[in-house]
C-alpha cells in the first residue's frame, strides 16, 4: 500500500543551520493499516509525513503509494492519493470561503478542475449536508457561512471530513488534535476512528500522546532523531501499556524521553 524505501532528508546542508531530519527511514504499510507514529520533538514524525505528501523532495530513497512511484511528483500531484489533516486547524481549510465551497474543493481533490463546470452544483449540496450532519456540530445548517467563523475544533472536524470525502488511498494525520482542548480533541479522535473504519482507510497518525497511540490504530511506530527505532505490530500492541512503551524507547534509543507532554500523556 505505502512503501517508504530508505528515505533521507537533510535541511540546509552544508550550513550552520544544517539539520538531518530523516535518516534511512524505511516503512511499509499494508492495506487497512492504521499506524500511530510517536516520538519526541524533532524526531522527524511530521517531516516523514511531509516527505510523503511532497512538501519537499527527499535526498535519497523512494516513496511508493499503491504501486505508483510518487518520489519526484510535486505536492499537488500527490494529492490524488492523499487525505491530509494538519496540526494547525487554520491550515486545512480556506477561511475566506464558505463551508460548502471548501467541501466542493475537497470533493474534487486530485481531479482536473474545469473552467466550464460550476465549482459547486446543487446536487452535491445534499451530499455535503448529510456528511456534515454526522459531525453533530450543526454545520449542516451553516453551509454558506465562511469557514473563518468556525472554532478550531469545528475547523479540524471539517478538515477531517474533507480529507475523507473523496476516499484517499492514504490518510495522513499530523498531530491533528494537538492544538485542541482535551474535550474537543477526544471528539475529533473519535470521529477519526469512525471515518477510518467506515471507509476502510489506510492511515498514518502522528501523535504526542502515548495513550492515544495505544488506544488507536493497529500498529505503533516510534521515531527518534530521524529514524524509526521501534515498530510494534498488531499482536504485541494490544497488550502494551504506556510504561512498556517508555521502556522500549529508553532501551532502543539509549536516552530517556525528555518530553513532558509525552510522558504525562496529556
Amino acid at each position: 500500500m505505502l512503501d517508504i524505501n530508505h528515505i533521507a532528508k537533510t535541511f540546509n546542508p552544508g550550513t550552520i543551520t544544517e539539520k538531518i531530519a530523516l535518516r534511512d527511514v524505511d516503512l511499509h504499510l499494508e492495506e487497512g493499516d492504521f499506524v500511530t507514529v510517536i516520538g519526541g520533538n524533532g524526531a522527524g514524525k511530521s517531516t516523514m509525513l511531509n516527505a510523503i505528501s511532497g512538501v519537499f523532495s527527499v535526498d535519497a530513497g523512494s516513496i511508493i503509494i499503491d504501486g505508483h512511484d510518487v518520489t519526484s511528483l510535486p505536492e499537488h500531484r500527490r494529492a490524488l492519493y492523499l487525505g491530509r489533516v494538519f496540526q494547525d486547524p487554520m491550515t486545512g481549510t480556506a477561511a475566506t470561503m464558505t463551508i460548502e465551497e471548501n467541501m466542493a474543493l475537497a470533493h474534487r481533490r486530485g481531479q482536473k478542475r474545469s473552467p466550464f463546470r460550476w465549482g459547486i452544483s446543487s446536487s452535491e449540496k445534499k451530499l455535503y449536508r448529510d456528511e456534515l450532519a454526522r459531525l453533530g456540530l450543526g454545520l449542516e445548517d451553516r453551509m454558506s457561512a465562511r469557514v473563518g467563523l468556525l472554532s478550531g475544533g469545528q475547523r479540524q472536524a471539517l478538515t477531517l471530513l474533507m480529507a475523507t470525502l473523496k476516499k484517499p488511498r492514504l490518510l495522513l494525520l499530523d498531530e491533528h488534535t494537538a492544538a485542541l482542548d482535551p474535550k474537543t480533541a477526544a471528539k475529533v479522535l473519535h470521529l477519526t476512528r469512525e471515518l477510518i473504519a467506515d471507509n476502510h482507510l489506510t492511515a498514518l497518525m502522528v501523535t504526542h500522546n502515548m495513550k492515544d497511540a495505544l488506544q488507536y490504530g493497529n500498529r505503533i511506530v516510534m521515531m527518534h532523531e530521524g529514524k524509526i527505532i521501534v515498530d510494534v505490530d498488531r499482536q504485541t500492541k494490544t497488550s502494551l501499556r504506556v510504561d512498556d512503551l517508555l521502556q522500549m524507547f529508553e532501551h532502543t534509543s539509549g536516552a530517556a524521553l525528555d518530553n513532558d507532554r509525552m510522558l504525562l500523556g496529556t
Binding site: 505528501s53 510535486p74 505536492e75 499537488h76 500531484r77 494529492a79 490524488l80 492523499l82 491530509r84 494538519f86 487554520m90 491550515t91 486545512g92 481549510t93 480556506a94 477561511a95 475566506t96 470561503m97 465551497e101 474543493l105 475537497a106 474534487r108 481533490r109 486530485g110 481531479q111 478542475r113
Partner: peptide, 16 residues
C-alpha cells in the same frame, strides 16, 4: 480563490 486563501490547503486538494 483557494490558492489565494490558503496555499497549503489548495495544494493538499491537488491544486497547482
Amino acid at each position: 480563490r483557494a490558492t489565494g486563501a490558503n496555499q497549503n490547503m489548495a495544494r493538499a486538494q491537488g491544486i497547482n
